[in-house]
Design a protein around this nucleic acid. Structure first.
Length: 454
DNA sequence: TTTTGAGTTGTTCGA
DNA sequence: GTCGAACAACTCAAA
């Protein structure tokens, strides 16, 4: 028998770590609520995890063992308690997770047991795709080509597990979470059903539809992928060579690229990948705090930005197009460091993934791998008019603006009598755009002015 | 070895 | 109103 330590692979199908555990006989499935991670999660993330675990437990006939505390102690203690020779996991490539797993491995090894990593949350494990000289890619397109050439295996059947039940071994209860948060269906079967439905409906129009937050143009699979309720290779196996499918495959590859980048540079979860941006002038102090607060609550006075931030507050999810616009607003209109926004997103997003989130932010900030050029500063009004042309998305999340017809919602300052309750703009975009360009030029000049800086 | 061209997601300005 | 140019700096692969 052995332990299957569940972390971010909440599924039974096509699960190599579980398959490996089954090869050792009966399997004891375990989930540990790690205080360090739990405390950083907002209500939607917490509810998502607990609901998904509940469903997983049902599909395991109630054999899940729940524990609380630091896995570095909890896992070795449990292994000792039931005399399990090995603990099976899917590998974690994040900075926190990989460090934690190393410590668990050391503790297990000392006791004569082993930690066995099988599979990862990716089609191609981070670190496997490199340039000819063995160094990692720093630009997406060459990575994508090499990733495609590397290939991945097809989804595999890992058999019917035999669950282990030791007399006297009792699970602790799952945490109590808010029932009032909005959640779409969670769990493995919901993930497969959603993917099936998306193949029938949106996938073939994905290349155009994915940019439109006002229509159901995206797969909505992000949280299912994040929690491992479905594996990316399951999704990839259903794609063909059509243009729409190719665009979708490239989005899966972005997720893999960012995981690879973070794996090679773990510090990029916290600091600028391009160190030049440390020198940038950022706003601090009470005024900055107040503007940050307005941004988090969807009260910037820019309807497209506010709609996105309120969607995040109420649903724990935001359309990708709007994530870019709201992120650009924090970094380039409010001149706050990307880390502040990334922290808020991680807390609030039900699909919050450290690699995709932090590097999405670094891309917008211009400090990341394959970064957005510094001059690409999103105009929140233009973006709204282009990608929410009838204003339906804004009206859905900003009730104060419902009296404004069609695209007029994107410029409520032109219709003050119809938007009395709606906040005034907290900054002037045209002015802050110039200010951002000025601050960027300042850190670029520094470099040229200091020839001996190296 | 060196050179060259291309590279997710945009905006503004001026002709 | 439409359209092309300009807005850096750097990585990477092909020539």
């Amino acid at each position: 028998m052995s332990i299957w330590w569940i972390r971010r692979d909440l599924r039974l199908q096509d699960n190599p770590a579980l398959g490996q555990a089954c090869a050792d006989g009966a399997v004891l499935p375990v989930f540990v609520f790690d205080t360090a991670l739990w405390d950083a999660a907002g209500p939607v993330r917490r509810a998502y995890l607990v609901n998904s675990l509940q469903l997983l437990n049902e599909s395991m006939a109630g054999h899940l063992i729940v524990r609380y505390g630091d896995p570095v102690h909890v896992i070795p203690e449990l292994a000792a308690e039931i005399s399990a020779p090995s603990v099976h996991i899917g590998a974690d490539y994040g900075p926190y997770g990989s460090m934690r797993d190393q410590q668990v491995e050391i503790a297990l090894t000392k006791a004569g047991r082993s930690l066995i990593r099988t599979g990862s949350p990716y089609a191609v494990a981070p670190g496997r795709v490199t340039k000819a000289d063995g160094t990692p890619y720093r630009v997406y397109t060459p990575f994508f080509k090499a990733w495609l050439a590397h290939g991945w295996r097809s989804p595999a059947d890992n058999g019917e597990p035999q669950w282990f039940a030791a007399p006297g071994l009792v699970s602790e209860p799952l945490p109590v979470v808010s029932r009032s948060v909005y959640l779409p269906p969670v769990g493995e079967s919901a993930a497969h059903q959603l993917w099936h439905e998306f193949q029938q409906s949106g996938l073939n129009g994905y290349d155009d539809g994915r940019n439109r937050p006002d229509i159901a143009g995206t797969s909505m699979l992000s949280a299912h992928l994040r929690w491992g309720e479905i594996h990316p290779r399951t999704v990839l196996a259903d794609l063909d060579e059509s243009p729409a499918h190719t665009v979708f495959r490239k989005e899966i590859a972005w997720r893999e690229f960012y995981a690879d980048v973070l794996h090679h540079t773990p510090t990029s979860a916290r600091t600028w990948l391009n160190p030049k941006f440390e020198q940038m002038e950022y706003e601090t102090g009470p005024d900055a705090d107040q503007q940050f607060e307005a941004w988090t609550q969807g009260r910037t006075g820019y309807p497209f930005v506010d709609a996105g931030m309120r969607q995040l507050l109420t649903e724990g999810w935001m359309h990708n197009r709007v994530r870019m616009v709201t992120a650009s607003f924090l970094v380039k209109d409010l001149h706050l460091p990307w880390q502040r926004g990334a922290w808020w997103f991680m807390k609030m997003l039900r699909d919050g993934d450290i690699a995709s989130n932090q590097h999405g932010w670094q891309w917008v900030a211009g400090s990341g791998t394959d970064a957005s050029p510094y001059f690409r500063i999103f105009n929140p009004v233009t973006q709204g008019l282009r990608f929410d042309p009838d204003g339906d998305y804004v009206r859905k999340y900003v009730p104060e603006l419902r009296a404004l017809p069609s695209k007029a919602v994107h410029e409520p300052w032109n219709h003050p009598l119809l938007a009395v309750e709606y906040p005034q703009r907290i900054v002037d975009h045209a002015h802050e755009r110039d200010e951002s360009l000025r601050r960027y030029a300042a850190i670029s000049e520094d470099k040229a002015a200091l020839p001996n800086a190296d």
